[in-house]
Design a protein around this nucleic acid. Structure first.
Lengths: 336, 336
DNA sequence: AACGTTGCCGATAACGATTGCGTAAATTTA
DNA sequence: TAAATTTACGCAATCGTTATCGGCAACGTT
């Protein structure tokens, strides 16, 4: 990879590198003629400044790091699209990393981003993460961090989340109102903020309608079909099995439907199902899947804007961190 | 972002930076005692080498660039997962960029990757791309490039593709064998290699069974529901409408199903549908969608391995570029 | 005539890490 | 004991870019 540098221009035009540099940046100290010559030659030989040299010199990279649990999940890929639109428009780049729901991988990613001198980090925590020292260290070094979707209370910074409580509340309420009497909830990793919020919404709806809360109906569960299948097995084996299931995530909803179909359970007659997913194909399902949708793209955009504001702010005044909660939407289809 | 550098270590231990550097790299020129002191102190203050400085010096970054049309597409996100597994195991990082099917965006991404000094590029072309000068230039500068899925014939390099011809052939053949008499094909962007290969497979199957090839049954189409809806409208309005549709991509299959359902077409009775998709939820559809699946993850892995081999090869001997074709799998469900 | 101002530009030092070369001290060899 | 060699380290250049500092004309001002 041979590349054109500012030195090549300087040598060719018999100028110093400083003059070339200044000419390229339009400094007033350089005469219009010199500027013209330099700019034209730079254009001609297709000069591109080396961002690596800039990063080294300025200790910043005009790029941000984005850590998500998994790209192969429509919620996160849509959020990333939101992030990129904002970030590009403001002259930055997004470096995307996946934790694959692994704590260890998340720590490695965080360290790598730090050494890459990203100017800030957007992160949605892995399902395994309980200890957030790696992020606290990063923040202590002065790195701006913004959480989206899955956050930790132990770090004081901007957070952009969906109204998980309200989404879960609406889903549970709808099931109650449509006559379901025993509503189970299949939740994701217990350590996640979204899990807690959604369970709280579920409980609150049951409370509002004076329904008993049966903790055996709340199942924490990994994403794999095997795990979900086991959980569904337990629920169905109960002497008083549920007539509805509210599922707390994309992956869980899909595994749940698959498991129920494998067991030839009639949806919604025998068991109604509501998911919490951003699948764009839920309307094609049999039956069409009712779901609580999150404004994934908007969450990404909002988080990116907050992060860039943090990065670019000049004032040394203490920051008032915000938690922005975006509304969820309940989409009712035939699965409930 | 204050960070620890080799200088800090040198100053603290009263050594020169060169000694510290060599000690950290385990050079034989450094005495065991000095090494020990340096390593322990580096560990203690949590020293991490600055990859940016290394990139600048060595003109390489131990990272590769990956350009895909869109992450929010299961085929590509799965391929990326395959790429990352390989790349990480071999000590590299993957920088992921999206062209959003835009030629202009693809060019910008390519240039950015070049200036970032990635050691190689994995790319799947955007649907708009017909001119590949941006890639040719890059290759001329010595940048290793490997195509996966969507390639260009005009660049001589490794290519990893699915057996699109065979997949399309099998899909069409299955439709013929199950008694369908007029089989339409909804194709993606005409300029894409995958489009051509799939159309050829479709034609070959029709030929084999001596069916007439009616070019009005082949529709090139964008991904949006509106466009697909129009195309379906045209097909249905025909005096002799098709009784089967073979759809050439993830997005098209979904839009196609949606459009057919909106028009209350009975699938598969009135029209059978086969997709070409990596949707992990196709079995949940109504009706379960028959589909040709590509080994997305494996394609990513293979492409990544080829690229890393190109990057790390020492010999100056001319390279024999390969085109690796991985088998597709036809999954028959109730939609046909 | 002496000095200050302004316009235009160059030399140099940094950013962090590596590396070829030089060299003093320690050790071995003759 | 002197010479030769080895050991163990420091110096300085390098990668591409910019900021700082300064130089040097050509002016104008007193």
């Amino acid at each position: 990879m041979e590349t054109v540098t500012i030195k090549d221009i300087a040598k060719a035009l018999n100028l110093s590198t400083s003059t070339v540099s200044r000419a390229l940046r339009g400094s007033y100290e350089i005469s219009p003629e010199t500027k013209k010559v330099v700019l034209e030659y730079a254009e001609k030989i297709n000069y591109r400044p080396n961002p690596i040299a800039l990063s080294l010199k300025e200790n910043r990279s005009r790029s941000i790091g984005v850590i998500v649990p998994e790209i192969d999940n429509p919620f996160f890929s849509q959020a990333i699209n939101g992030i990129e639109t904002i970030v590009y428009n403001r002259g930055y780049h997004a470096l995307i990393f996946q934790s694959y729901e692994s704590y260890q991988r998340e720590v490695i990613n965080v360290q790598h981003l730090a050494s890459r001198r990203v100017d800030g980090v957007l992160i949605s925590l892995s399902g395994q993460t309980t200890d957030i020292d790696h992020l606290r260290e990063l923040q202590d070094k002065g790195m701006p961090i913004v959480f989206f979707d899955r956050f930790s209370d132990e770090i004081n910074t901007h957070k952009v989340i969906a109204d998980n409580f309200d989404g879960a509340f609406k889903a549970t309420e709808h099931l109650i109102k449509s006559g379901r009497r025993r509503i189970a909830h299949i939740a994701a990793s217990a350590s996640l903020s979204i899990t807690k919020e959604r369970i709280n919404g579920y409980r609150a709806a049951l409370n509002k309608y004076q329904r008993p809360i049966d903790d055996t109906l709340i199942k924490y569960c990994g994403y794999s079909l095997v795990e979900v299948d086991n959980v569904i097995g337990e629920l169905l084996a109960d002497s008083n099995p549920p007539d509805a299931i509210f599922t707390a995530s994309d992956r869980l909803a899909v595994s749940c439907l698959t498991a129920l179909k494998n067991k030839h359970v009639d949806i919604p007659k025998q068991i109604a199902v509501v998911g919490f997913t951003n699948l764009k194909v839920a309307h094609l399902f049999d039956p069409p899947l009712s779901t609580v949708m999150q404004p994934a793209m908007e969450m990404g955009q909002t988080a990116a804007e907050l992060l860039l504001d943090l990065i670019e702010r000049k004032s040394k005044a203490p920051i008032t961190y915000q938690t922005i909660k975006l509304p969820t939407e309940m989409i009712i289809r035939e699965s409930c």
